[in-house]
Design a protein around this nucleic acid. Structure first.
Length: 551
RNA sequence: GCGCCCGUAGCUCAGCUGGAUAGAGCAACGGACUUCUAAUCCGUAGGUCAGGCGUUCGAAUCGCCUCGGGCGUACCA
Protein backbone atom coordinates (compact mmCIF):
# COMPACT_ATOMS: atom_id res chain seq x y z
CA UNK A 1 0.00 0.00 0.00
CA UNK A 2 1.17 3.50 -0.79
CA UNK A 3 0.79 4.65 2.79
CA UNK A 4 3.17 1.96 3.96
CA UNK A 5 5.71 3.08 1.37
CA UNK A 6 5.47 6.65 2.61
CA UNK A 7 5.73 5.62 6.26
CA UNK A 8 8.78 3.61 5.42
CA UNK A 9 10.52 6.61 3.84
CA UNK A 10 9.57 9.02 6.60
CA UNK A 11 10.79 6.56 9.15
CA UNK A 12 14.20 6.06 7.54
CA UNK A 13 14.65 9.79 7.14
CA UNK A 14 14.14 10.39 10.86
CA UNK A 15 16.47 7.55 11.69
CA UNK A 16 19.06 9.05 9.35
CA UNK A 17 18.65 12.38 11.10
CA UNK A 18 19.90 10.75 14.25
CA UNK A 19 16.64 11.00 16.17
CA UNK A 20 16.44 8.59 19.06
CA UNK A 21 14.50 5.43 18.25
CA UNK A 22 12.27 5.88 21.30
CA UNK A 23 11.24 9.31 20.03
CA UNK A 24 10.43 7.92 16.60
CA UNK A 25 8.42 4.96 17.80
CA UNK A 26 7.05 2.19 15.65
CA UNK A 27 6.83 2.83 11.92
CA UNK A 28 3.19 1.73 11.80
CA UNK A 29 2.08 4.54 14.06
CA UNK A 30 3.33 7.29 11.78
CA UNK A 31 0.22 9.10 10.70
CA UNK A 32 -0.19 9.68 6.97
CA UNK A 33 -3.26 11.74 6.07
CA UNK A 34 -4.94 12.97 2.98
CA UNK A 35 -5.02 16.75 3.29
CA UNK A 36 -8.34 18.44 2.79
CA UNK A 37 -6.83 21.02 0.53
CA UNK A 38 -5.39 19.75 -2.73
CA UNK A 39 -2.60 22.27 -2.79
CA UNK A 40 -1.01 20.31 0.03
CA UNK A 41 -0.40 17.34 -2.23
CA UNK A 42 -1.64 13.76 -2.16
CA UNK A 43 -0.58 12.92 1.37
CA UNK A 44 0.72 14.73 4.41
CA UNK A 45 2.14 13.84 7.79
CA UNK A 46 2.12 15.62 11.14
CA UNK A 47 5.02 13.47 12.28
CA UNK A 48 7.38 16.41 12.95
CA UNK A 49 4.93 17.62 15.63
CA UNK A 50 4.94 14.22 17.27
CA UNK A 51 8.72 14.06 17.39
CA UNK A 52 9.12 17.71 18.25
CA UNK A 53 7.65 17.32 21.70
CA UNK A 54 9.99 14.48 22.54
CA UNK A 55 13.28 15.90 21.29
CA UNK A 56 12.64 19.58 22.00
CA UNK A 57 13.26 20.77 18.48
CA UNK A 58 10.92 23.00 16.48
CA UNK A 59 8.64 20.97 14.22
CA UNK A 60 9.39 23.06 11.17
CA UNK A 61 13.11 22.38 11.51
CA UNK A 62 12.49 18.66 11.68
CA UNK A 63 10.10 18.86 8.74
CA UNK A 64 12.56 20.81 6.59
CA UNK A 65 15.44 18.52 7.36
CA UNK A 66 13.36 15.42 6.69
CA UNK A 67 11.97 16.82 3.46
CA UNK A 68 15.52 17.26 2.22
CA UNK A 69 16.67 13.74 2.82
CA UNK A 70 13.57 11.61 2.26
CA UNK A 71 14.12 9.20 -0.62
CA UNK A 72 12.35 10.79 -3.58
CA UNK A 73 11.94 7.61 -5.61
CA UNK A 74 8.13 7.58 -5.52
CA UNK A 75 7.56 11.30 -5.08
CA UNK A 76 7.53 14.18 -7.49
CA UNK A 77 7.44 16.72 -4.69
CA UNK A 78 8.13 16.78 -0.96
CA UNK A 79 7.51 19.98 0.93
CA UNK A 80 8.02 21.06 4.49
CA UNK A 81 5.44 23.67 5.25
CA UNK A 82 4.37 26.33 7.75
CA UNK A 83 3.78 24.99 11.23
CA UNK A 84 5.58 21.73 10.51
CA UNK A 85 3.76 19.42 8.16
CA UNK A 86 5.44 17.47 5.40
CA UNK A 87 3.43 17.28 2.20
CA UNK A 88 3.90 14.64 -0.46
CA UNK A 89 3.00 14.57 -4.11
CA UNK A 90 3.40 11.23 -5.80
CA UNK A 91 4.90 10.63 -9.21
CA UNK A 92 2.32 9.72 -11.85
CA UNK A 93 3.93 6.32 -12.40
CA UNK A 94 3.59 5.54 -8.70
CA UNK A 95 -0.13 6.15 -8.95
CA UNK A 96 -0.45 4.39 -12.28
CA UNK A 97 0.95 1.21 -10.84
CA UNK A 98 -2.14 0.77 -8.68
CA UNK A 99 -4.25 0.22 -11.79
CA UNK A 100 -2.20 -2.79 -12.75
CA UNK A 101 -2.50 -3.97 -9.18
CA UNK A 102 -6.28 -3.65 -9.24
CA UNK A 103 -6.54 -5.38 -12.60
CA UNK A 104 -4.50 -8.27 -11.33
CA UNK A 105 -6.42 -8.60 -8.05
CA UNK A 106 -9.94 -8.08 -9.44
CA UNK A 107 -12.60 -9.03 -6.91
CA UNK A 108 -9.83 -9.58 -4.37
CA UNK A 109 -8.61 -6.00 -4.50
CA UNK A 110 -8.99 -4.38 -1.11
CA UNK A 111 -8.21 -7.50 0.86
CA UNK A 112 -5.06 -7.56 2.93
CA UNK A 113 -3.39 -9.94 5.35
CA UNK A 114 -3.48 -7.25 8.02
CA UNK A 115 -5.38 -9.38 10.55
CA UNK A 116 -3.02 -12.29 10.23
CA UNK A 117 -5.88 -14.78 10.33
CA UNK A 118 -6.83 -14.03 13.92
CA UNK A 119 -10.21 -15.49 14.72
CA UNK A 120 -13.03 -13.07 15.41
CA UNK A 121 -16.63 -13.91 16.07
CA UNK A 122 -19.32 -11.37 15.35
CA UNK A 123 -22.58 -12.09 17.09
CA UNK A 124 -25.52 -9.98 16.04
CA UNK A 125 -29.29 -9.79 15.63
CA UNK A 126 -29.84 -12.65 18.12
CA UNK A 127 -33.53 -11.82 18.24
CA UNK A 128 -35.80 -13.92 20.39
CA UNK A 129 -37.55 -16.67 18.44
CA UNK A 130 -40.93 -15.41 19.55
CA UNK A 131 -41.84 -13.45 16.47
CA UNK A 132 -40.71 -12.12 13.13
CA UNK A 133 -37.73 -9.78 12.94
CA UNK A 134 -38.71 -6.19 13.39
CA UNK A 135 -37.57 -3.28 11.35
CA UNK A 136 -35.42 -2.32 14.32
CA UNK A 137 -33.38 -5.46 13.81
CA UNK A 138 -32.60 -4.19 10.33
CA UNK A 139 -29.98 -1.75 11.49
CA UNK A 140 -28.30 -4.32 13.71
CA UNK A 141 -28.37 -6.85 10.90
CA UNK A 142 -26.94 -4.53 8.27
CA UNK A 143 -24.30 -3.23 10.63
CA UNK A 144 -23.17 -6.63 11.85
CA UNK A 145 -23.09 -8.23 8.45
CA UNK A 146 -21.10 -5.48 6.77
CA UNK A 147 -18.76 -5.14 9.73
CA UNK A 148 -18.10 -8.88 9.52
CA UNK A 149 -17.40 -8.60 5.79
CA UNK A 150 -15.04 -5.68 6.28
CA UNK A 151 -13.14 -7.35 9.09
CA UNK A 152 -12.84 -10.44 6.98
CA UNK A 153 -11.42 -8.40 4.09
CA UNK A 154 -8.87 -6.97 6.47
CA UNK A 155 -7.45 -10.44 6.94
CA UNK A 156 -9.26 -11.82 9.96
CA UNK A 157 -10.99 -15.17 10.15
CA UNK A 158 -14.57 -14.15 10.83
CA UNK A 159 -17.61 -16.09 11.93
CA UNK A 160 -21.16 -14.73 11.96
CA UNK A 161 -23.26 -16.06 14.79
CA UNK A 162 -26.88 -15.73 15.85
CA UNK A 163 -27.69 -16.60 19.47
CA UNK A 164 -31.11 -18.09 19.99
CA UNK A 165 -32.51 -17.32 23.40
CA UNK A 166 -34.85 -20.28 23.56
CA UNK A 167 -35.10 -20.73 27.33
CA UNK A 168 -37.07 -18.80 29.91
CA UNK A 169 -40.25 -16.91 30.51
CA UNK A 170 -40.63 -15.59 27.02
CA UNK A 171 -40.56 -19.09 25.64
CA UNK A 172 -43.17 -20.17 28.15
CA UNK A 173 -45.32 -17.28 27.06
CA UNK A 174 -44.79 -18.27 23.48
CA UNK A 175 -45.77 -21.86 24.20
CA UNK A 176 -48.92 -20.78 25.99
CA UNK A 177 -49.84 -18.48 23.15
CA UNK A 178 -49.35 -21.23 20.59
CA UNK A 179 -51.43 -23.55 22.70
CA UNK A 180 -54.25 -21.03 22.72
CA UNK A 181 -54.02 -20.60 18.97
CA UNK A 182 -54.16 -24.37 18.62
CA UNK A 183 -57.31 -24.47 20.69
CA UNK A 184 -58.66 -21.76 18.46
CA UNK A 185 -58.15 -23.96 15.40
CA UNK A 186 -60.31 -26.54 17.13
CA UNK A 187 -63.11 -24.03 17.23
CA UNK A 188 -62.68 -22.88 20.80
CA UNK A 189 -63.17 -19.24 21.54
CA UNK A 190 -60.11 -17.80 23.19
CA UNK A 191 -59.60 -14.75 25.28
CA UNK A 192 -57.16 -12.48 23.40
CA UNK A 193 -56.05 -11.06 26.74
CA UNK A 194 -54.58 -14.45 27.57
CA UNK A 195 -52.25 -14.30 24.60
CA UNK A 196 -48.72 -13.40 25.62
CA UNK A 197 -47.92 -12.77 22.00
CA UNK A 198 -50.88 -11.28 20.23
CA UNK A 199 -49.46 -11.21 16.69
CA UNK A 200 -51.38 -13.00 13.96
CA UNK A 201 -48.22 -14.82 12.91
CA UNK A 202 -48.85 -17.60 15.42
CA UNK A 203 -52.14 -18.55 13.77
CA UNK A 204 -50.69 -20.32 10.69
CA UNK A 205 -48.06 -21.97 12.88
CA UNK A 206 -50.77 -23.39 15.12
CA UNK A 207 -52.70 -24.63 12.10
CA UNK A 208 -49.72 -26.48 10.70
CA UNK A 209 -48.94 -27.92 14.12
CA UNK A 210 -52.46 -29.23 14.50
CA UNK A 211 -52.49 -30.60 10.98
CA UNK A 212 -49.29 -32.52 11.68
CA UNK A 213 -50.10 -33.68 15.21
CA UNK A 214 -53.86 -33.92 15.45
CA UNK A 215 -55.97 -33.08 18.44
CA UNK A 216 -54.53 -36.06 20.33
CA UNK A 217 -51.79 -33.74 21.59
CA UNK A 218 -54.27 -32.42 24.08
CA UNK A 219 -54.20 -35.83 25.69
CA UNK A 220 -50.57 -35.25 26.63
CA UNK A 221 -49.63 -33.71 29.97
CA UNK A 222 -49.71 -29.96 29.81
CA UNK A 223 -45.96 -29.39 30.15
CA UNK A 224 -45.12 -31.95 27.46
CA UNK A 225 -47.74 -30.55 25.14
CA UNK A 226 -46.55 -27.02 25.60
CA UNK A 227 -42.94 -28.02 25.17
CA UNK A 228 -43.75 -29.66 21.87
CA UNK A 229 -45.75 -26.66 20.71
CA UNK A 230 -43.06 -24.25 21.82
CA UNK A 231 -40.29 -26.11 20.08
CA UNK A 232 -42.36 -26.37 16.95
CA UNK A 233 -43.01 -22.64 16.96
CA UNK A 234 -39.37 -21.85 17.62
CA UNK A 235 -38.26 -23.89 14.65
CA UNK A 236 -40.80 -22.18 12.43
CA UNK A 237 -39.77 -18.76 13.66
CA UNK A 238 -36.08 -19.46 13.15
CA UNK A 239 -36.69 -20.67 9.63
CA UNK A 240 -38.74 -17.57 8.97
CA UNK A 241 -36.10 -15.26 10.44
CA UNK A 242 -33.39 -16.96 8.40
CA UNK A 243 -35.43 -16.46 5.26
CA UNK A 244 -35.91 -12.76 6.02
CA UNK A 245 -32.21 -12.34 6.68
CA UNK A 246 -31.37 -14.09 3.44
CA UNK A 247 -33.53 -11.60 1.57
CA UNK A 248 -31.55 -8.95 3.39
CA UNK A 249 -28.34 -10.48 2.10
CA UNK A 250 -27.26 -12.17 5.31
CA UNK A 251 -26.35 -15.76 5.97
CA UNK A 252 -25.19 -16.79 9.43
CA UNK A 253 -22.49 -19.39 9.90
CA UNK A 254 -23.87 -20.57 13.22
CA UNK A 255 -27.26 -20.44 14.93
CA UNK A 256 -26.42 -21.17 18.53
CA UNK A 257 -29.29 -22.33 20.72
CA UNK A 258 -29.19 -21.50 24.39
CA UNK A 259 -30.91 -24.69 25.51
CA UNK A 260 -27.90 -26.79 24.57
CA UNK A 261 -25.90 -24.98 27.25
CA UNK A 262 -28.47 -26.09 29.81
CA UNK A 263 -28.82 -29.60 28.39
CA UNK A 264 -25.09 -30.19 28.56
CA UNK A 265 -24.90 -28.97 32.13
CA UNK A 266 -22.59 -26.13 31.20
CA UNK A 267 -24.65 -23.49 32.96
CA UNK A 268 -24.30 -25.32 36.26
CA UNK A 269 -20.59 -25.72 35.59
CA UNK A 270 -20.18 -22.02 35.11
CA UNK A 271 -21.70 -21.42 38.50
CA UNK A 272 -19.34 -23.97 40.02
CA UNK A 273 -16.43 -22.28 38.31
CA UNK A 274 -17.39 -18.92 39.74
CA UNK A 275 -17.92 -20.30 43.21
CA UNK A 276 -14.54 -22.06 43.10
CA UNK A 277 -12.92 -18.82 42.04
CA UNK A 278 -14.71 -17.07 44.90
CA UNK A 279 -16.45 -14.81 42.43
CA UNK A 280 -19.88 -16.01 43.49
CA UNK A 281 -21.52 -16.51 46.86
CA UNK A 282 -24.81 -17.73 48.29
CA UNK A 283 -27.16 -15.44 50.15
CA UNK A 284 -30.89 -15.49 50.88
CA UNK A 285 -31.24 -18.71 48.96
CA UNK A 286 -29.79 -17.31 45.76
CA UNK A 287 -26.34 -17.32 44.20
CA UNK A 288 -24.81 -13.94 43.53
CA UNK A 289 -21.98 -12.81 41.36
CA UNK A 290 -19.76 -10.26 43.06
CA UNK A 291 -19.95 -8.01 40.06
CA UNK A 292 -19.40 -4.88 42.10
CA UNK A 293 -15.77 -5.93 42.50
CA UNK A 294 -15.47 -5.06 38.85
CA UNK A 295 -17.08 -2.23 36.97
CA UNK A 296 -20.68 -2.99 37.78
CA UNK A 297 -22.50 -0.97 40.41
CA UNK A 298 -23.98 -3.87 42.36
CA UNK A 299 -23.94 -7.64 42.67
CA UNK A 300 -26.13 -9.67 40.35
CA UNK A 301 -28.13 -12.81 40.80
CA UNK A 302 -26.89 -15.89 38.96
CA UNK A 303 -29.24 -18.51 40.36
CA UNK A 304 -32.58 -17.46 41.69
CA UNK A 305 -33.94 -18.63 44.99
CA UNK A 306 -36.33 -20.89 43.08
CA UNK A 307 -33.27 -22.74 41.79
CA UNK A 308 -33.45 -21.53 38.21
CA UNK A 309 -30.49 -19.84 36.52
CA UNK A 310 -30.85 -16.26 35.39
CA UNK A 311 -30.39 -15.19 31.83
CA UNK A 312 -27.13 -13.59 32.91
CA UNK A 313 -25.65 -16.87 34.10
CA UNK A 314 -26.60 -18.51 30.82
CA UNK A 315 -25.08 -15.62 28.94
CA UNK A 316 -21.84 -15.96 30.86
CA UNK A 317 -21.84 -19.63 30.01
CA UNK A 318 -22.38 -18.75 26.39
CA UNK A 319 -19.42 -16.40 26.39
CA UNK A 320 -17.24 -18.94 28.13
CA UNK A 321 -18.20 -21.33 25.37
CA UNK A 322 -17.23 -18.79 22.71
CA UNK A 323 -13.69 -18.51 24.03
CA UNK A 324 -13.44 -22.24 24.37
CA UNK A 325 -14.25 -22.47 20.71
CA UNK A 326 -11.02 -20.59 20.09
CA UNK A 327 -11.99 -17.05 19.17
CA UNK A 328 -9.34 -14.47 19.89
CA UNK A 329 -11.89 -11.70 19.99
CA UNK A 330 -15.62 -11.78 20.40
CA UNK A 331 -17.73 -8.89 19.15
CA UNK A 332 -21.30 -8.55 20.45
CA UNK A 333 -23.56 -6.12 18.66
CA UNK A 334 -26.42 -4.91 20.81
CA UNK A 335 -29.17 -2.37 20.55
CA UNK A 336 -28.83 0.69 22.77
CA UNK A 337 -31.55 -0.61 25.04
CA UNK A 338 -29.04 -3.18 26.31
CA UNK A 339 -26.18 -0.84 27.05
CA UNK A 340 -26.68 -1.18 30.79
CA UNK A 341 -25.61 -4.78 30.42
CA UNK A 342 -22.11 -4.10 29.12
CA UNK A 343 -20.25 -3.71 32.40
CA UNK A 344 -21.93 -6.78 33.79
CA UNK A 345 -20.97 -8.92 30.82
CA UNK A 346 -17.40 -7.67 30.73
CA UNK A 347 -17.08 -8.30 34.45
CA UNK A 348 -18.39 -11.77 33.87
CA UNK A 349 -15.82 -12.49 31.21
CA UNK A 350 -13.06 -11.24 33.47
CA UNK A 351 -14.29 -13.23 36.44
CA UNK A 352 -14.16 -16.39 34.35
CA UNK A 353 -10.50 -15.68 33.77
CA UNK A 354 -10.46 -14.06 30.36
CA UNK A 355 -8.95 -10.76 29.35
CA UNK A 356 -12.00 -8.46 29.12
CA UNK A 357 -10.43 -6.76 26.12
CA UNK A 358 -11.29 -9.89 24.18
CA UNK A 359 -14.95 -8.96 24.43
CA UNK A 360 -16.04 -5.96 22.44
CA UNK A 361 -19.60 -4.84 22.85
CA UNK A 362 -20.73 -2.49 20.12
CA UNK A 363 -23.86 -0.54 20.88
CA UNK A 364 -25.97 0.50 17.92
CA UNK A 365 -28.41 3.29 18.61
CA UNK A 366 -32.07 2.65 18.12
CA UNK A 367 -33.99 3.72 15.06
CA UNK A 368 -37.21 5.63 15.26
CA UNK A 369 -39.54 4.89 12.43
CA UNK A 370 -41.80 7.50 11.06
CA UNK A 371 -44.88 6.81 9.07
CA UNK A 372 -47.24 9.52 7.86
CA UNK A 373 -45.43 12.01 10.05
CA UNK A 374 -45.81 10.05 13.29
CA UNK A 375 -43.30 7.95 15.17
CA UNK A 376 -44.32 4.33 15.31
CA UNK A 377 -44.35 2.70 18.71
CA UNK A 378 -43.65 -0.94 18.35
CA UNK A 379 -44.21 -3.86 20.63
CA UNK A 380 -43.77 -7.49 19.81
CA UNK A 381 -46.11 -8.57 22.54
CA UNK A 382 -48.82 -6.23 21.31
CA UNK A 383 -48.16 -7.47 17.81
CA UNK A 384 -48.23 -4.04 16.22
CA UNK A 385 -44.69 -3.87 14.92
CA UNK A 386 -43.39 -3.21 11.46
CA UNK A 387 -41.41 -6.21 10.36
CA UNK A 388 -38.12 -6.28 8.53
CA UNK A 389 -39.99 -8.04 5.76
CA UNK A 390 -42.30 -5.05 5.46
CA UNK A 391 -39.32 -2.75 5.15
CA UNK A 392 -37.66 -4.88 2.49
CA UNK A 393 -40.91 -4.96 0.58
CA UNK A 394 -41.42 -1.21 0.89
CA UNK A 395 -38.00 0.18 0.13
CA UNK A 396 -35.90 -2.78 -0.96
CA UNK A 397 -32.80 -4.38 0.49
CA UNK A 398 -30.37 -2.03 -1.24
CA UNK A 399 -32.03 1.13 0.03
CA UNK A 400 -32.59 -0.15 3.53
CA UNK A 401 -29.07 -1.45 4.00
CA UNK A 402 -27.57 1.67 2.52
CA UNK A 403 -29.64 3.91 4.74
CA UNK A 404 -28.61 2.07 7.89
CA UNK A 405 -24.97 1.79 6.92
CA UNK A 406 -24.41 5.42 5.96
CA UNK A 407 -24.81 6.58 9.54
CA UNK A 408 -22.37 5.87 12.30
CA UNK A 409 -23.70 3.45 14.87
CA UNK A 410 -23.82 6.21 17.50
CA UNK A 411 -26.28 8.33 15.60
CA UNK A 412 -29.85 8.21 16.80
CA UNK A 413 -31.54 8.15 13.49
CA UNK A 414 -35.03 8.62 12.18
CA UNK A 415 -36.24 6.49 9.34
CA UNK A 416 -39.05 8.06 7.41
CA UNK A 417 -40.40 5.25 5.31
CA UNK A 418 -42.32 7.44 2.90
CA UNK A 419 -39.29 9.65 2.40
CA UNK A 420 -37.09 6.67 1.64
CA UNK A 421 -39.44 5.71 -1.15
CA UNK A 422 -40.12 9.16 -2.59
CA UNK A 423 -36.61 10.50 -2.45
CA UNK A 424 -35.33 7.50 -4.27
CA UNK A 425 -34.59 9.71 -7.26
CA UNK A 426 -32.04 11.80 -5.45
CA UNK A 427 -30.50 9.26 -3.18
CA UNK A 428 -26.77 8.92 -2.55
CA UNK A 429 -27.14 5.22 -3.15
CA UNK A 430 -27.92 5.88 -6.79
CA UNK A 431 -24.94 8.17 -7.03
CA UNK A 432 -22.73 5.16 -6.38
CA UNK A 433 -24.69 2.72 -8.46
CA UNK A 434 -24.90 5.17 -11.32
CA UNK A 435 -21.12 5.53 -11.44
CA UNK A 436 -20.85 1.77 -11.70
CA UNK A 437 -23.49 1.52 -14.41
CA UNK A 438 -21.91 4.37 -16.34
CA UNK A 439 -18.58 2.59 -16.41
CA UNK A 440 -20.17 -0.64 -17.55
CA UNK A 441 -21.69 1.31 -20.38
CA UNK A 442 -18.33 2.88 -21.25
CA UNK A 443 -16.63 -0.48 -21.35
CA UNK A 444 -19.34 -1.82 -23.62
CA UNK A 445 -18.99 1.26 -25.81
CA UNK A 446 -15.24 0.74 -25.97
CA UNK A 447 -15.65 -2.86 -27.00
CA UNK A 448 -17.99 -1.77 -29.81
CA UNK A 449 -15.30 0.56 -31.11
CA UNK A 450 -12.70 -2.15 -30.84
CA UNK A 451 -11.07 -0.44 -27.87
CA UNK A 452 -10.04 -2.54 -24.98
CA UNK A 453 -7.72 -2.01 -22.08
CA UNK A 454 -6.66 -5.60 -22.18
CA UNK A 455 -5.31 -5.14 -25.69
CA UNK A 456 -2.52 -3.05 -24.28
CA UNK A 457 -3.23 0.18 -22.53
CA UNK A 458 -0.29 2.45 -21.90
CA UNK A 459 -1.08 3.70 -18.41
CA UNK A 460 1.70 6.28 -18.53
CA UNK A 461 -0.63 8.36 -20.70
CA UNK A 462 -2.80 9.06 -17.66
CA UNK A 463 -1.38 12.34 -16.42
CA UNK A 464 -4.33 14.67 -16.11
CA UNK A 465 -5.05 16.11 -12.67
CA UNK A 466 -8.43 14.39 -12.45
CA UNK A 467 -6.92 11.09 -13.52
CA UNK A 468 -4.21 11.26 -10.92
CA UNK A 469 -6.68 12.08 -8.15
CA UNK A 470 -8.86 9.18 -9.21
CA UNK A 471 -5.91 6.81 -9.10
CA UNK A 472 -4.89 8.13 -5.71
CA UNK A 473 -8.38 7.43 -4.45
CA UNK A 474 -8.26 3.89 -5.81
CA UNK A 475 -4.99 3.28 -4.02
CA UNK A 476 -6.66 4.19 -0.73
CA UNK A 477 -9.27 1.44 -0.88
CA UNK A 478 -7.37 -1.21 1.11
CA UNK A 479 -6.46 1.43 3.69
CA UNK A 480 -10.10 2.40 4.07
CA UNK A 481 -11.06 -1.20 4.62
CA UNK A 482 -8.43 -1.60 7.28
CA UNK A 483 -9.42 1.52 9.13
CA UNK A 484 -13.13 0.67 8.89
CA UNK A 485 -12.29 -2.76 10.27
CA UNK A 486 -10.12 -1.66 13.15
CA UNK A 487 -12.39 1.20 14.16
CA UNK A 488 -15.45 -1.03 13.69
CA UNK A 489 -17.03 1.71 11.59
CA UNK A 490 -18.48 0.40 8.35
CA UNK A 491 -19.98 3.78 7.48
CA UNK A 492 -16.53 5.08 6.61
CA UNK A 493 -16.55 2.82 3.61
CA UNK A 494 -19.63 4.60 2.28
CA UNK A 495 -18.01 7.98 2.74
CA UNK A 496 -15.05 6.68 0.78
CA UNK A 497 -17.12 5.17 -2.02
CA UNK A 498 -19.15 8.35 -2.36
CA UNK A 499 -15.94 10.32 -2.79
CA UNK A 500 -14.65 7.82 -5.30
CA UNK A 501 -17.86 8.06 -7.30
CA UNK A 502 -17.60 11.86 -7.15
CA UNK A 503 -14.04 11.78 -8.44
CA UNK A 504 -15.15 9.55 -11.25
CA UNK A 505 -18.14 11.68 -12.28
CA UNK A 506 -15.94 14.76 -12.34
CA UNK A 507 -13.27 13.02 -14.39
CA UNK A 508 -15.93 11.76 -16.79
CA UNK A 509 -17.15 15.26 -17.49
CA UNK A 510 -13.71 16.63 -18.17
CA UNK A 511 -12.30 13.86 -20.28
CA UNK A 512 -13.63 11.74 -23.06
CA UNK A 513 -13.02 8.07 -22.41
CA UNK A 514 -13.97 6.32 -25.63
CA UNK A 515 -12.45 8.24 -28.54
CA UNK A 516 -11.75 6.02 -31.53
CA UNK A 517 -9.46 8.66 -33.04
CA UNK A 518 -7.21 8.35 -30.00
CA UNK A 519 -7.07 4.62 -29.37
CA UNK A 520 -4.13 4.71 -26.99
CA UNK A 521 -5.43 7.23 -24.53
CA UNK A 522 -8.85 5.58 -24.78
CA UNK A 523 -7.41 2.20 -23.88
CA UNK A 524 -5.57 3.69 -20.94
CA UNK A 525 -8.69 5.47 -19.71
CA UNK A 526 -10.72 2.31 -20.09
CA UNK A 527 -8.12 0.69 -17.89
CA UNK A 528 -8.63 3.39 -15.30
CA UNK A 529 -12.42 3.10 -15.55
CA UNK A 530 -12.27 -0.66 -15.23
CA UNK A 531 -10.27 -0.24 -12.04
CA UNK A 532 -12.85 2.21 -10.70
CA UNK A 533 -15.59 -0.25 -11.53
CA UNK A 534 -13.74 -3.02 -9.70
CA UNK A 535 -13.38 -0.92 -6.57
CA UNK A 536 -17.00 0.23 -6.66
CA UNK A 537 -18.19 -3.33 -7.15
CA UNK A 538 -15.97 -4.66 -4.36
CA UNK A 539 -17.13 -1.89 -2.04
CA UNK A 540 -20.80 -2.35 -2.80
CA UNK A 541 -20.42 -6.07 -2.25
CA UNK A 542 -19.12 -5.40 1.24
CA UNK A 543 -22.16 -3.25 1.88
CA UNK A 544 -24.47 -5.94 0.59
CA UNK A 545 -25.79 -3.57 -2.03
CA UNK A 546 -26.13 -4.44 -5.71
CA UNK A 547 -23.88 -3.01 -8.41
CA UNK A 548 -26.14 -2.70 -11.46
CA UNK A 549 -24.68 -2.73 -14.97
CA UNK A 550 -27.32 -0.36 -16.22
CA UNK A 551 -29.82 2.01 -14.71
C1' G B 1 -30.78 10.49 41.34
C1' C B 2 -26.97 7.67 38.67
C1' G B 3 -24.97 5.61 33.91
C1' C B 4 -24.43 5.33 28.34
C1' C B 5 -25.38 7.89 23.57
C1' C B 6 -26.54 12.29 20.83
C1' G B 7 -26.74 17.96 19.77
C1' U B 8 -22.41 20.39 13.17
C1' A B 9 -26.00 24.43 6.98
C1' G B 10 -33.47 24.90 6.40
C1' C B 11 -33.57 18.86 6.39
C1' U B 12 -30.69 13.96 6.73
C1' C B 13 -25.85 13.17 8.11
C1' A B 14 -20.03 12.96 7.45
C1' G B 15 -15.69 15.08 9.60
C1' C B 16 -10.09 9.85 8.77
C1' U B 17 -9.23 8.88 16.69
C1' G B 18 -5.92 16.59 18.12
C1' G B 19 -4.11 19.32 12.43
C1' A B 20 -3.82 23.52 7.71
C1' U B 21 -9.72 27.89 5.03
C1' A B 22 -15.62 22.75 8.99
C1' G B 23 -17.79 19.05 4.30
C1' A B 24 -21.53 15.85 1.29
C1' G B 25 -26.46 14.77 -0.30
C1' C B 26 -31.38 16.72 -0.37
C1' A B 27 -34.03 21.57 -0.43
C1' A B 28 -33.04 27.07 -2.79
C1' C B 29 -30.85 30.01 -6.77
C1' G B 30 -27.85 30.44 -11.62
C1' G B 31 -25.47 27.82 -15.58
C1' A B 32 -23.97 22.99 -18.80
C1' C B 33 -27.05 17.68 -23.14
C1' U B 34 -26.71 17.74 -32.12
C1' U B 35 -20.57 13.90 -28.93
C1' C B 36 -19.22 7.90 -24.23
C1' U B 37 -26.05 7.30 -19.45
C1' A B 38 -27.99 15.04 -17.28
C1' A B 39 -29.88 9.39 -11.65
C1' U B 40 -24.37 13.67 -13.95
C1' C B 41 -21.26 18.13 -13.88
C1' C B 42 -19.89 23.55 -12.72
C1' G B 43 -21.12 27.77 -9.76
C1' U B 44 -23.91 30.91 -5.79
C1' A B 45 -26.10 31.19 -1.11
C1' G B 46 -26.42 28.88 3.57
C1' G B 47 -22.44 27.82 10.24
C1' U B 48 -21.78 31.32 17.46
C1' C B 49 -19.88 23.06 15.40
C1' A B 50 -26.12 23.61 21.72
C1' G B 51 -23.68 27.14 25.53
C1' G B 52 -19.54 28.13 29.02
C1' C B 53 -14.72 27.21 31.24
C1' G B 54 -10.24 24.51 30.72
C1' U B 55 -5.96 21.38 28.56
C1' U B 56 -1.71 23.11 24.14
C1' C B 57 1.89 25.16 19.13
C1' G B 58 -3.44 23.88 17.41
C1' A B 59 -10.13 21.70 19.74
C1' A B 60 -16.20 20.11 16.13
C1' U B 61 -12.73 16.21 18.11
C1' C B 62 -9.86 15.60 24.77
C1' G B 63 -11.58 17.15 30.33
C1' C B 64 -15.21 19.57 33.61
C1' C B 65 -19.96 22.22 34.10
C1' U B 66 -24.88 23.86 32.21
C1' C B 67 -29.06 23.29 28.84
C1' G B 68 -31.89 20.09 25.56
C1' G B 69 -33.22 15.03 23.47
C1' G B 70 -32.91 9.37 23.28
C1' C B 71 -32.03 4.93 26.09
C1' G B 72 -31.09 2.23 30.51
C1' U B 73 -30.99 1.45 35.66
C1' A B 74 -35.01 -6.58 37.86
C1' C B 75 -34.09 -13.05 41.82
C1' C B 76 -37.18 -10.13 33.02
C1' A B 77 -34.97 -11.79 28.81
Amino acid sequence: MLIDLIRQRVHSAFVEMGIDASAIGPKESIQIDTPKNRKFGHYATNFPFVVSGKVKRPPLDLASKAAEIIDRDIFSKIEAVKPGFINFTLKPETLQSTIAEITAAGAEYGKTAFGGGKRIQVEFVSANPTGPLSVGHGRLAAFGDTLASIISSAGFDVQREFYVNDVGNQIENLSKSVELRCKETLGETIDPEQLGYKGEYLVPIAKVFMAENGKEVFALPENERRAAMGEFAIRKMLAYQAETLKKFGIVFDVWFREHQLHDEGLVEKTLELLVSRSEAYEEEGAFWFATSRYKDDKDRVLKKSDGRPTYFLADMTYHNNKYQRGFDTVIDIWGADHHGYIDRMKSGVEAMGYDPARLEVLIVQLVRFKQSGDYVRMSKRAGNMITLDDLIEEVGTDMARFFFLTRSRDSHLDFDIELAKEKSEANPLFYLQYAHARICSLIAKGAESGLNYKDGGDLSLLKEEKELLLMKRLADFPVEIQSSATSREPHRLITYLTELAGDFHTFYHDHRVVAPEEPEISAARLGLCTAVRTVLANGLRLLGVSAPESM
